[in-house]
Simulated scan of single mutants.
Amino acid sequence: MNDPAESLAVSAHVPAYAGYFADPFVLRTPTGYIAYGTVPSATPGASPPSDGRQFQMLTSPDLVHWTDAGGALIPLPVRLGTDYWAPEVAYRDGQYWLYYSLGHGDKGHHLRVAVADAATGPFVDTGVNLTPTEAFAIDAHPYRDVDGTWYMFYSHDVLVGPRVGTMLAVDRLATMTSLAGQATTIVRPDADWQIYQLARPMYGRVLDWHTLEGPSVVRHDSRYYCFFSGGSWKNAGYGVSWAESDHPLGPWHRVHDAPRILRTIGHEIIGPGHNSVTVAPNGTDVIAYHAWDADLTARLLHLSPLRWTSGGPRVDGFSGPELSNAVN
């Protein structure tokens, strides 16, 4: 079995790396791949990088064999936050830009950006809060369109509408360290599987809280697909779906009767979510995501081939007509 894509297909339900590795983002480089992931320091079972930096890095020549590459980000003062979530890296003009969220627990998170001359860092924070007007912003996803325009997709809290909670937004990246200030909510909760918690105390109220998070955008056949996670990452109902658009700014539409991209499969895959998409050495698309181990003590890195069909994107073993009733 010499083709890495074949190895991924066979081992789709087997973690690609044994250590704790949540919110995986995989960057393809001229010499291979670098994965960046969240490894929370206060979580039992997690082992943060020994070099004292935030965000674990892994390197691979083929998406199959992975090696620990240490930590990515030089940490900031504790007063700015203690919880570092969901790193993603973009390359522009000879520099690498790491976008992430920082806060205390599930309170007051905002988006930040760090920069380095190498893809493996060390990344140094630029001192910029990208979302100073947001009460809660996480899961930054920088996206470069075919015309060279950069956009920032992320999740933020919205308290109006029939289903309130954390939703997907987009803004234009005016520079790599500033947003245009024209953020728009693009995908809102529309189904019960996206409920995070009923009667959740939030913002001085008690609300049935929904969560859409982890946006990741791919352009395929001149159309844009925004993959996102929905529901509670603590529950087996957590899964990945998608919305479609003709332009990064929208309007974005979700196919309500379409199956999810990823979902729990017995004890093989538990609570898969927060994905990114990269390209395998043979040119096919691969989706990276985390899923819980059998003991529910760690979120582990998984990779699976992503197929494009007339009915939209699919991951074999997760999506198909037999799962359509599980969506809404």
Rank of each mutant, 00 (worst) to 15 (best):
His65Ser: 15
Phe123Arg: 01
Leu300Asp: 10
Val128Asn: 02
Leu27Arg: 13
Ser216Met: 15
Pro49Val: 13
Pro321Ile: 04
Ser155Cys: 14
Val39Arg: 00
Ala169Phe: 14
Gly311Cys: 01
Gln194Thr: 11
Asn235Leu: 14
Cys226Gln: 11
Asp117Leu: 11
Trp308Asn: 05
Ala191Ile: 07
Ser11Arg: 15
Leu207Gly: 00
Tyr238Val: 07
Pro77Met: 03
Val39Ser: 07
Gly311Arg: 10
Glu6Gln: 13
Pro87Tyr: 03
Leu212Cys: 09
Leu27His: 13
Arg112Val: 00
Arg223Ala: 10
Asp157Ala: 12
Ala258Trp: 07
Gly81Ser: 02
Arg314Ala: 15
Thr264Glu: 12
Ser60Ala: 03
Thr29Gln: 08
His13Asp: 10
Tyr20Trp: 14
Ser241Leu: 08
Arg299Glu: 10
Gly19Thr: 13
Val217Glu: 07
Ala326Arg: 15
His256Pro: 01
Pro77Arg: 02
Thr131Glu: 02
Pro30Trp: 04
Thr211Lys: 08
Pro189Gly: 08
Leu323Ile: 01
Ser41His: 13
Ala135Ser: 11
Asp68Gly: 05
Asp295His: 10
Tyr154Cys: 05
Val315Ile: 15
Ser304Phe: 00
Asp171Tyr: 10
Leu168Gln: 14
Asp157Phe: 13
Ala46Gly: 04
Gln182Thr: 15
Gly237Asp: 15
Gly52Lys: 04
Leu8Asp: 01
Tyr91Ile: 04
Leu207Asn: 12
Arg144Val: 12
Pro77Tyr: 01
Leu301Trp: 03
Leu296Asn: 12
Val146His: 14
His210Gly: 01
Tyr17Ser: 10
Tyr96Lys: 05
Trp85Thr: 08
Ala18Ser: 12
Trp252Arg: 04
Leu179Gln: 14
Leu301Cys: 01
His65Gly: 09
Ala236Phe: 07
Ala119Ser: 15
Gly105Leu: 07
Leu111Gly: 05
Arg299His: 09
Gly271Ser: 15
Tyr91Gln: 14
Pro281Met: 05
Leu73Ala: 09
Asp190Thr: 09
Thr29Ile: 09
